[in-house]
Write a protein that binds this DNA or RNA. Sequence first.
DNA 1: AGTCATCATGTAATCGGTTACACCTTCTTT
DNA 2: AAAGAAGGTGTAACCGATTACATGATGACT
Lengths: 345, 345
Amino acid sequence: MMTGKIITIKDVAEMAGVSKATVSRVMNNSGYVAAETRRKIENIMETYHYVPSALAVNLSRQETKTVGVVIPEIGNTFYSDILHGITQAADEQDLSLVLFDTQDNLEKEERAFRLLQQQKVRGIILGPSVDYPETPEGRALLAKLREYSVPIVIIDRDFENMPWDAVLYENYQCSYQAALELYKAGNRRLAIITGDMTLKIGRERFEGFRKGAADCGLQLEERDIYYGNFLMKKSYELSMKLLSEEKLPDAVYTCNNMTSLGFMKAVKEKGLQIGKDIAVIGNDRIEMLDILGIPFSCVYRDNYEMGRMALRLLQERVKYPEKARSIHMIPYQVKLKGSEKRKKK
Amino acid sequence: MMTGKIITIKDVAEMAGVSKATVSRVMNNSGYVAAETRRKIENIMETYHYVPSALAVNLSRQETKTVGVVIPEIGNTFYSDILHGITQAADEQDLSLVLFDTQDNLEKEERAFRLLQQQKVRGIILGPSVDYPETPEGRALLAKLREYSVPIVIIDRDFENMPWDAVLYENYQCSYQAALELYKAGNRRLAIITGDMTLKIGRERFEGFRKGAADCGLQLEERDIYYGNFLMKKSYELSMKLLSEEKLPDAVYTCNNMTSLGFMKAVKEKGLQIGKDIAVIGNDRIEMLDILGIPFSCVYRDNYEMGRMALRLLQERVKYPEKARSIHMIPYQVKLKGSEKRKKK
DNA sequence: AGTCATCATGTAATCGGTTACACCTTCTTT
DNA sequence: AAAGAAGGTGTAACCGATTACATGATGACT
């Protein structure tokens, strides 16, 4: 609490009777320093609790050991899992993280970038709030981003013609596979609660699923397509509608974790039973359901790994600024727990 | 991607044909600047995308607009909720956050502090991994922390004789109340799965619950006390043991969210039913259970608010460094959903 | 006309480090 | 014994901003 004056390199140098340069040499283990001088200086640093100012170091070195993380919503376990991966990797690489939660808000995103740029971070890991090209403001931000010299790694949401590295999932494949599994489990009339169709990931998942169904000889009917937005509330409403049909579809595919939750909530509320009244397979695992022993089949994606990989790509980019854009796909796994089946009545 | 040279204040000054001081005045709206000069400078800044270096600004101002956040485990929703609150408050206050996830590891915690101190953050919000005084290494870190001049706000876990501000829950009261509710719901033989009893919060919750029971005329028997550690795995094991008794206690109190989950998992696995075979009330809400419509009574605590409050206290401290230590208690609320009752057979 | 605000801008020190370069010793080597 | 290499340290410029102080206009007031 009541610390005295903060010690600088100059103070240490004076006390040791040497120049700042020598002290600097001791700290960085560079150049020649007599053993005794080194000891003396280290002693002084120790006793006076000297801590070099990162501000000064960074300014003179013209680089930092910080990475920016810009994500839409920490409250969503999807992102907190990714963040967890990033923190662990950052720890290993001796990097600090500056975090921004944009709440899917373009202005906040913009502010985050401005601040990060000012702070001269090494790079930025970005979970974009939107597919920028969709709106004028989005385009504007995108244009700005391009001006930045900071390396950027995009996670989860890719968009066309981007110059940046990215860590992504095989959205099309995931969903294709989901359709196949539902078919294999005996379901014939499939339904889908989509994500936000203005987003590429939303469209990909939809298309993948439809193609998967088609390749099984199933036609996805328009009435069985429920257009959602990746949020729980909407999914819940759509699910309530879906589950109120006089004749339910055999199975539903829910396009992300929030969509799945909305659906599960509706199922519960309707007093229906998964595996009896209707089958379901979701995109993304919901850990809590596993813990609670509630069977929920899903296309599992390793978000923790996505976070780790994002940082790795960033490091690569910093090391080789000129290398070609690299896109890393995180493999997915189908986890069948039984909810993909439905006992025929 | 391919940005040219990065523009500095000197470049801007030269292009505008003025001195750095004038440019600085324009940026900070300080001192006098002729309207035309200002326009010219602003124009140049605009066209060349000038961004002042936060490194240089911070160094010369001798302060930053950053706050450090050091928490044990982002993967735990308890902390990600708090973090959410912190990010929102930080956004409003125009602060940046530097995040560290310590994984309950003292060394990582220490490293985090070292880095934050170097970065000259305004202050640190700390969710301590342990009650430091318990171990020698803990004491050592604590001693170090005291040397720091950085303001610190402790969240969730307080410990004796600390000089720092804190945002806490009324652990004793929460648990006392939980016992009362279980009694009121008709339960007579109570059990508890405790948290880590080496931690003050663990002991407080235990004592509060015991006292609550006692004040209802109930004696908490030794065999009904299950000593856990706040982690799911341990709680699950203990719960399995508990639920294997030939005669079950009427109700259980689980001391935190992870403990609750371990218990719920065991209940499910045993094929038992809450509200029929056994009653339960937990410390901390588990949002997922609400969503899924699984009744789970709890002592609800507003973690988001805890995060916001932590940042507020930090700001206060920065503003008035000499003011007395302030401890803010976040109110709790009992949320009864039915799981606290048990139909007598 | 002289004095004094007010306006406008520049100079140079400063923040706390890093680092190229210069200089002086001392020890090897031939 | 001279030359060169290696060890040890200091000087001063630099990173990119801020800011106290100085200086020179301009206009108003007495």
